[in-house]
Simulated assay, not measured.
Amino acid sequence: MADSGSPTITVDLNADLGEGVGDDEAMVGIVTSANVACGFHAGDPFELLSTCRAAAAAGVRIGAQVSYPDREGFGRRFMDIESARLTADIIYQIGALQAIARSVGVDVEYVKPHGALYNSIVSHELQADAVVAAIVELGGTLPLMGLPGSLSLRLAGDKGLSTITEAFADRAYRPDGTLMPRSEPGSVLTDTGEIARRVVGLVERREVTAVDGSVVAVDAESICLHGDTPGAVEHARAVRAALTDAGIDVSAR
């Protein structure tokens, strides 16, 4: 348990929902932010509406989980899309989810790219700029969630946008602070206890151990709990319980 005289640490827990996979009903009762699919990699209007309604009822913050137009590959394949077209795709996805969210009395409060697009804009200047441009063209009020140190967050800050730094509960890290590709063995962690301990250490010490044993600094305001991996709900419950036991406040605010 954290020292009662020390400042309270607060962290957000987010999960990818509305994708038509995993147990969204259980996850929405654990997390504090829901990255809701926007139909390009997964989800349909009914699923998105149902997810937004459930998140609203649970008091969970809603974010637009934008992606490449890649339903066949679940948004996990890089696509070399023209910048102007990618910007238009992002505007379209956010706008659709905004309409659905408002129909149940809530708003979209941030943007989080999904899958290959998320990883691309860590360093791909044209695509990072295209994503940031979409948010700017929608008024510049939505924060961008992404990997600490990524090019996309730097460009967002340069444009006056708010940002949300994120770390991953169940993904392996490379020594440079990027995620190990899912195509490589060991890229996704599966041991519930290990995941929970790792997240508490990450939040308390702001660091994570990379695959080569080196320690990587990770200053994250939100922790992603994947909802589509085996044992996802068990992992999420264990993480939240471990954070609470450590005296860490779990909140999106």
Rank of each mutant, 00 (worst) to 15 (best):
P185K: 15
A217G: 15
Q98L: 09
A167Q: 07
T229Q: 11
C38K: 09
G18P: 03
A241L: 05
I81G: 08
L86K: 00
L189S: 10
A88H: 09
R206M: 10
A34D: 11
I91L: 03
E125D: 11
V215Q: 15
I195H: 05
P143L: 14
A128M: 12
A167P: 07
A54T: 14
S123H: 07
G29W: 03
G75M: 11
N35S: 07
G43Y: 04
R197H: 10
M1L: 12
L147A: 11
A116I: 03
V108Y: 04
R197P: 02
A37H: 11
A196M: 06
R253V: 13
H235N: 11
L142K: 15
T51I: 10
G22S: 08
V188P: 02
G5R: 14
S83A: 12
T141V: 06
Q93M: 04
E207Y: 01
L49G: 13
E125H: 07
A15S: 12
E234P: 03
A238W: 00
G186V: 10
A133V: 14
A101I: 00
Y118Q: 13
C52T: 09
V106M: 08
G139L: 03
V215R: 15
H41N: 04
G247L: 05
S187M: 10
A130G: 07
A252L: 01
L17K: 00
G160Q: 12
A238V: 02
D16R: 08
Y68E: 12
I81L: 15
R198F: 13
S251P: 02
S187W: 00
G63M: 01
D24P: 14
R206Y: 02
K159G: 02
L97Q: 10
V66D: 00
L155N: 05
L189H: 13
M1S: 06
I9R: 14
S83E: 06
C224G: 03
S214Y: 08
I94T: 06
Y110N: 12
L225I: 09
G227L: 09
I100G: 03
R71P: 01
V132R: 13
D107Y: 05
A37F: 09
V11S: 01
T190S: 14
R198M: 13
A54I: 12
L189Y: 04
G193I: 01
G115N: 07
V233H: 02
T87S: 10
G22C: 02
A167D: 04
G75P: 04
A15L: 09
R198V: 07
E125P: 05
L117Q: 08
I135W: 00
G29Q: 01
A99E: 11
M1P: 13
L17Y: 00
L147R: 12
T192S: 06
E184V: 09
T32M: 06
G39W: 05
D44T: 07
E19K: 08
A84S: 13
F74C: 01
V215W: 12
M180Q: 15
A42Y: 11
R197I: 09
D89N: 13
I223V: 15
A57F: 01
S50G: 14
P45K: 15
L13I: 08
G227Y: 00
L179P: 00
P148E: 08
R154D: 05
A252N: 11
D191I: 08
D16L: 01
R53I: 06
I223Q: 10
D158N: 10
R102G: 14
R171G: 13
